[in-house]
């Protein structure tokens, strides 16, 4: 009998983490700065990711091992797709204060609203 791992889904998280990181870079690169100088890519990513995780968090996933899918899609893909450190970084790396604050406020408030919306969708479906 193999010893039970404390991190049973590390492979799923590692793979999902790579996918989420690549998706974040792709989307952030595709979304350019707006006319005012604010680059909304990270905020958009965070809100989208929060909606998706809110939805996933209340879905009763079918299949043999739902926890495995949550580790892959939730902890892995959506966890690394969304980011908090980019928000902190924007306030110390010379990004304008207005742009940094815009990303932070939209990410946090939009993320919470998005997660609540995702919850609602997931519970209704």
């Amino acid at each position: 009998m193999p010893r039970r791992s404390r991190l049973p889904y590390w492979r799923e998280v590692a793979l999902g983490g790579a996918i989420g990181t690549a998706a974040r870079i792709a989307l952030d690169t595709a979304v350019g700065p707006l006319a005012g100088g604010w680059d909304p890519g990270i905020a958009l990513i965070n809100v989208l990711g929060a909606v998706a995780l809110g939805w996933l968090s209340v879905r009763a996933l079918s299949g043999a091992d739902p926890a495995r899918w949550r580790a892959f899609a939730g902890t892995g893909i959506l966890g690394s797709f969304t980011t908090f450190s980019a928000l902190s970084l924007a306030l110390v790396d010379g990004t304008s204060l207005g742009a940094g604050l815009a990303s932070l406020v939209v990410s946090v408030l939009g993320g919470v609203a998005g997660a609540a919306l995702g919850h609602r969708w997931g519970a209704a479906a």
């Binding site: 998706a52 966890g79 980011t83 908090f84 970084l89 919470v112």
Partner: peptide, 20 residues
């Protein structure tokens, strides 16, 4: 920063935890 820091940090779980 973009790779390791971005993967380590997260906003989606923060938002979902707070809503929960």
């Amino acid at each position: 920063a973009v790779g390791f820091g971005g993967g380590l940090s997260t906003l989606s779980t923060l938002a979902v935890d707070s809503v929960s």
